[in-house]
Design a protein around this nucleic acid. Structure first.
Lengths: 196, 196, 196, 196
DNA sequence: TATGAATGAGTCTTCATTCAT
DNA sequence: GATGAATGAAGACTCATTCAT
């Protein structure tokens, strides 16, 4: 009697969920959680605002879900660096390139919003507390040390070097330097000079 | 009820104005124009919210006034670089240091808010259009060239070099890397490696 | 997909209608028309909320139908009192007992909702206007008079006596005094003291 | 410099608060918490809906405040019974009369709403749990016993007698029998027959 | 000048109702 | 007949702004 079989329903739900999350990421990233109206997300996703609430209980839940995903994906992207080919500096170059190329900026902007804005759900804040800068630094630490041993990377506390690098990169991503006329995204090799 | 004379009134007015603008800068910088409530500014300034409207017609006007000041002061700070002692790279080092040291971050954050957020008054946006990255680049261009001629600064299009550098710096300021645990403000000499 | 014959369809339809009305009565009685969500009725009836609309055009229609039934059945219950055995006071005792015992409370609560709440469809209100207290009083009037003549029932205007009694009873039913810890349903004989 | 002195401000606040609570009591009592729109309360109080939120944080808080007051005042009214003149039954007669006369019905209706409706703030529910029927029964228990000893009141468990009486009375108040054409508020002496 | 009471436009969220399947 | 995705009107609540004092 079921008019749509379960598979079809799951398909619709997955598609809508993805559609909404993509739309929300774009809008939240630029406008922050307060500046984002649910109607904007609905419009961006091409659905009615009422439908948002079939898929996410609230604006907060939607935001938190995105932050969750941003954290998860960024951690996994970093961990993936060790699979890349070449020397440590080659790996870092590739990592940087992929971050810049991909649609990575919204994630950085979202996390920045989540860290600094007001009106951010407590759950999101907790999530980010569990993944502070150090968590990211730790992942890349072995690579940095290897690079220093190979003489490719400048001497100094590797923790600081990598934190410096990630901070510079984060800043540029948050500015959306690649897409914005107002700023300029440096060449990767120029950025890497910070480490060399 | 002894009436104050005109001079005293002007004095009060100037002081209040300054007080409000300082408070507003702090709040706007961190929370953006939408995230900032007039009552927050009033609280930060230690006055009633009603009084704000004696000094600024609206939230938008207050915001725009701050952006105006931010632009003016940053331009003049840049122009001032030529008065600094030492070689071109020394001058850039001093400039960078003073930006990081001083209460510069709120200005950068404010401008970033003004550039990216929505709900920003059109007037602010216009103001920023009149002072795009190029305006800043142009000011520093002679210094860059001089540095390149002296061999202190890497070869390449000086416009790009300086734009890269300013972008990196802006990003770090917007992250408030100096104050925030989540990020790290690199040493100035490490930043300068981007140029050298 | 073997088509059901007409008889089966009618059977399903009747069964569903009954099922929905029973569910709706329960929910409306406790939560009132505004506090009741169609999804609650659907859940109580074990069907999808969409299906409700195959059987009732709207929430209002469903509510009105229930009120209609409540009025009809209560009138017929009252009229039935004359078939009960025993003296007038015996009849009243039996009537009271059956009202208290049976699932009568939801009807009273529903009617109370319909009389007092807002957001009640005009049609329901009209229905109740056609059956004011007097309609009920009139039905029992002969019984009261008979009881008075027999000396079983206190003297006084029989209309008032019966209206008093029905009001007290209604109040207790609306409180759901029988089911609720917060109140107490008196013994029938104690209630009858009002009349004796 | 304060444009209104503190006393004036307190006066305004008190007046408004009272005005809002009176309006809210009327509306809540009849329509329940869900059926009541804040705009209705605002209209009843003759103010804008925005102003409600200067005085009460939310609809829930307003409702809870009223329930609090209803409980407090009803307890104190009951306790006051011992100050009334006459025999136990005289005291009960006076108590009943004053409950019926005074604007007591909205309080009963409010409490009934709070006990039975959905969407009632947890805090209100807690409040009522602390004052169940028993709390009221206990207050009147000595009076009942005294009446029984004097032979004015029927024998039987005094707890049950008084609970019966209070339930009947509550029911009539909830029906608003005094004001509503649909019902009839019996004479006090007729009600008292329940106890005698 | 200074305060805070007052207003109302705008946003989040709920839910009756519709409709494709 | 049956389901649940989809829509949009309506209500709670916030906050920029006004204004009496």
């Amino acid at each position: 009697m079921a008019p749509l079989n379960e598979e079809q329903l799951i398909h619709i739900r997955d598609e809508r969920t993805e559609q909404i999350m993509a739309a929300a990421l774009q809008v939240f990233a630029r406008r922050g959680i307060i500046g984002t109206k649910m109607s904007m997300i609905a419009a961006e996703a091409g659905i009615s605002h009422g439908l948002l609430y079939h898929y996410f209980k609230s604006k907060d839940e939607l935001f938190t879900t995105l932050v969750q995903r941003a954290v998860t994906e960024s951690i996994s992207a970093l961990k993936n660096v060790y699979q890349l080919p070449g020397s440590p500096i080659d790996k870092l170059r590739s990592l940087t390139e992929s971050m810049i190329e991909a649609e990575g900026a919204p994630f950085f902007m979202l996390v920045h919003q989540a860290r600094t804005s007001d009106g951010v759900p407590e759950e999101s804040r907790q999530l980010l507390k569990e993944y502070p800068m150090n968590a990211y630094v730790d992942i890349l630490l072995p690579l940095l040390k290897e690079g220093q041993e190979a003489g490719e990377i400048a001497p100094g506390r590797p923790e600081d070097l990598i934190a410096d690098y990630l901070s510079v990169l984060s800043g540029l991503m948050v500015l959306d330097a690649k897409q914005t006329e107002d700023y300029r995204m440096p060449e990767v090799d120029r950025l890497l000079r910070i480490l060399t």
